[in-house]
Simulated scan of single mutants.
Amino acid sequence: MTSRKSPPRGCKNPPESAASPPESHEPPLRTVGSKKLKEDDHYDAGDDGLGTLKMMVMMIRALAAPPKGFHHKAFSQSARHPVPGKSPMVWWSRPLGQVILEVLRFHPIPCAFAVSLLFFMGVEYSLLMVSPSSPPYDLGFVFTHSLHLFLARRPSLNTILAALNTVFVGMQTAYILWALLVECRPRAAIAALFMFTCRGILGYATQLPLPKEFLGSGVDFPVGNVSFFLFFSGHVGGSVIASIDMRRMQRWELAWIFDALNFLQGLRLLATRGHYTIDLAVGVGAGFLCDALAGRYQEIKSTSSKDAWSPTATLQQQQLVPVVQQPLLVSKPHPSTL
């Protein structure tokens, strides 16, 4: 009489005789429309049009649905999608009216730019071009027409304002040189060099005609009624660079004073026809751009050579690094000479 052997302790699997049959390696069946096909079989779309349509709908839904474990908020913040908390496919799968309202809510400024784009496209395509025989049309000249006539009747007042404007240019220059030589901060000076270099290249490349109503003065900068580039305004660009540097150093009151004087300077330049409106606008943008370029230049140089622009770096290194003196070598007499 044979006794039935029990399975080993800790083994929960049944004996080999009761093991499940081996799995089949045949490819599984998949349903396409009303047909069941193997994975290796080929399906012709023309066999069942309804099945193909259902398959396309299922594919679109699968693409639109977020994957398992998908966190909309984290994904949108990392990828910066148009609407916070929505992935791209989920965003476009929503009703159009709701999508428009969410975009207007979260991005009002780009929406305003989009409206202005459409507006100015209509203005540009329907505007009559200025004839070659006519002077350039400048909207700033139109707004300052009465001030221009006021200064044209009073040459002495125009000379006083020109002298004050020259003093303001000297203030800009003095502040930038102070930041460079005294505070050892060269960013404003580098930005000014970038800006005036670009101004010289662009001003020579496109030489705009001097307005016929130009009110010149011998004390206006550059002093002496010399020729100058109209595009773009170095007066405005230098003031913007100095104002940005003041805000960087948290000199808020001085920065606001420079901004106010810069506004009055631009108003005077338009009234005296010393610059076109586009010269002043590009001067403001050039100030911001050249300051950013100067900051980027300093970052690049700091990685390669630290404190390369600091005039006191050599003195500090000399004070911090101790001088290692070599011991004096004294020759001892040879024993035979004793």
Rank of each mutant, 00 (worst) to 15 (best):
L315N: 08
A286Q: 04
F231E: 00
G69Q: 09
D138S: 00
A188G: 04
L210G: 03
S17N: 15
I60D: 14
Q265C: 11
G266M: 07
L53T: 07
I190S: 03
L164S: 01
V57Y: 12
P333E: 10
L320E: 14
G49W: 13
I278V: 08
V284D: 04
G10R: 03
D259I: 02
I109H: 03
T197Y: 02
E39K: 15
K301H: 05
M55H: 12
R61N: 10
A271M: 00
L149A: 06
F196G: 02
V182D: 11
R268N: 14
P8N: 07
H235Q: 01
P28L: 10
I190P: 02
G237A: 13
F231K: 00
D291T: 15
L53C: 01
S116F: 14
I241A: 00
L96D: 07
Q298W: 01
P95W: 07
F228H: 12
L320T: 10
S3T: 15
L329I: 08
M55R: 11
H148A: 04
H334A: 11
D307Y: 10
G33F: 05
F258N: 10
L210N: 05
Q298R: 06
V167A: 09
A65R: 08
P67V: 08
P8R: 11
S134W: 01
H275D: 04
S17P: 05
I201C: 03
P108A: 03
H334V: 09
V236M: 03
F228P: 00
F168K: 02
P27S: 15
E124C: 12
V99R: 13
L161T: 03
D307E: 11
G97A: 11
W309R: 09
H145F: 12
K301Q: 11
A62W: 07
P95E: 11
M195V: 07
L139Y: 13
S24M: 06
D245A: 13
K38S: 14
D40G: 09
G237F: 01
T312Q: 08
H42P: 06
V167Q: 06
R199L: 08
T314C: 10
I300G: 12
L289P: 02
P7M: 14
Y297F: 15
V219Y: 10
L147S: 13
E299T: 11
F119N: 06
N225V: 05
P132V: 02
Y43Q: 13
P84L: 00
G203H: 00
T303G: 11
R247W: 10
L264A: 13
D245I: 07
A313L: 06
T312V: 13
Q207C: 02
P222G: 00
S76R: 02
D40R: 11
E23I: 12
L63K: 14
K54T: 08
G140H: 00
E253D: 15
N165V: 06
A294W: 00
S87L: 09
L320H: 13
G200H: 05
K36Q: 15
V226F: 09
L161N: 01
Q319D: 14
P333R: 14
G203T: 01
V90N: 09
R153V: 12
L264Q: 03
M58V: 15
P66C: 04
K306T: 13
P322L: 04
H334W: 12
K35E: 12
Q207M: 04
S116N: 12
L29V: 15
F194M: 06
R187M: 04
R187T: 06
K68I: 07
V169A: 09
M89K: 13
P22V: 02
L230G: 01
N13I: 12
S78C: 04
L254S: 15
L128A: 14
L193C: 05
L320F: 08
